[in-house]
Design a protein around this nucleic acid. Sequence first.
DNA 1: CACTTGACAACAA
DNA 2: CTTGTTGCCAAGT
Length: 106
Amino acid sequence: MAIKLSFEEVYEVVKLIPPGRVATYGDIAAYLGTRSSRYVGWALNHSHLDISVPAHRVVNRLGILSGRHHFEDPNEMAARLEAEGIEVLNGEKVKEFERLRWQFHS
DNA sequence: CACTTGACAACAA
DNA sequence: CTTGTTGCCAAGT
């Protein structure tokens, strides 16, 4: 499907992440052809208006749920991941992140 | 156009 | 662990 514009580009990429997998801001940025991971996070910040965007599958390069504070309940992000079979340590870090990390366009 | 802001990344101290 | 700097780049003001 054709990539749209700006924020929607990020949304579309995030939607490509299958359940039980996660991706980093840097990976998404690279897939979009930019090196600005900040842009991805910033776009995701506006994604609250679009519930179809699985923002809980996006973590920083360490596998930390750095965006959990932006959910209404910080625990919800980890809860959603666990519901998909992803183990979360201390409710903030994805277990075996390197193995679960989704790689776009192999 | 100039400046600031970000759910980042990588490094320095 | 913390704080700070630099790079990055679209959107907001």
